[in-house]
């Protein structure tokens, strides 16, 4: 079943069109990779799906589980199961990570009409996931992402993903700024979350990440459009030949 349907999406930022009619369909259980050069609009797409203000959708639509995503506030989208792992997770001084995790999880559950997580269940779950992601407990006591290294910030995004159990995970440049070991830990965390009910969109500039998170479908994005789609071998092809050929096509 189609989980995410982006249809002929046109998006402007400050009067300039960035996405020029982008179409993308992601089914339940699938892992899609979106590859493309810097500035091709990958982060813009992820932000529009998550509901970040400042983007004007001038045409097209985004359906999530058949519902119009663009009509929903960002928090409603999160509660429905959309999760964006940010390229640059922000630091929030003074908001303890544990408080944040619990508040967010319970806000999502409340929006879905579910009961709040009990404290022991919550703690057990956080401990379990953070252990598998090699996140020390004292990191969770600090402000959200405050003083975290690049790798720790990305692992904290994966931790949230595991905790919130979204049905759509969008990972924006999860590999940027990570060394191989950190990348492997984060990728293992993501792979553990693959499931027949959950889809993932892995946005990356480099093929490297896709050695660890192997996609079912690869899309090439250039100048605000998907210009080619194929199987995982497309990523290797790109690695060998570069994006130049597609820039002409776009």
């Amino acid at each position: 079943m189609a989980l995410l349907e982006v249809k002929d999406l046109k998006v402007r930022v400050e009067e300039r069109e960035i996405l020029h009619g982008l179409t993308l369909t992601v089914n339940e259980g699938e892992v899609h990779a979106i590859m493309g050069p810097n500035g091709s609009g990958k982060s813009t797409l992820s932000h529009v799906i998550a509901g970040k203000p400042g983007y004007e959708v001038t045409d097209g639509q985004i359906l999530f589980k058949g519902e119009d995503l663009l009509e929903m506030d960002p928090n409603e989208r999160a509660a429905k199961g959309v999760f964006l792992a940010f390229q640059y997770p922000v630091e929030i001084p003074g908001v303890a990570t544990m408080t944040f995790l619990r508040t967010a999880l319970n806000a999502q559950r409340k929006a879905r009409g579910e009961s709040e997580y009990s404290t022991p269940d919550f703690l057990r779950k956080v401990r379990e996931v953070s252990k598998s992601l090699n996140i020390p407990q004292d990191m969770l006591k600090r402000g959200v992402n405050v003083g975290f290294s690049g790798g720790e910030k990305k692992r904290n995004e994966v931790l949230q993903m595991a905790l919130f159990e979204p049905s759509l995970c969008i990972l924006d440049e999860m590999d940027s700024g990570l060394d191989i070991d950190a990348l492997r830990i984060a990728a293992d965390g993501v792979n553990a979350l693959r499931s027949p009910k959950r889809a993932m969109v892995v946005i990356t500039h480099y093929q490297r990440l896709l050695n660890y998170i192997v996609p079912d479908v690869v899309h090439v994005m250039s100048k605000g459009r998907v210009v080619k789609s194929g199987g995982k071998e497309l990523a290797l092809e790109l690695e060998a030949s570069g994006y130049a050929q597609f820039e002409d096509a776009a």
């Binding site: 509901g51 967010a104 806000a107």
Partner: peptide
């Protein structure tokens, strides 16, 4: 705004 959006993207109402 960027902090607010991060929190909202994690499910917190405004």
């Amino acid at each position: 705004d960027s902090l607010l959006f991060y929190l909202k993207a994690r499910g917190l109402p405004e």
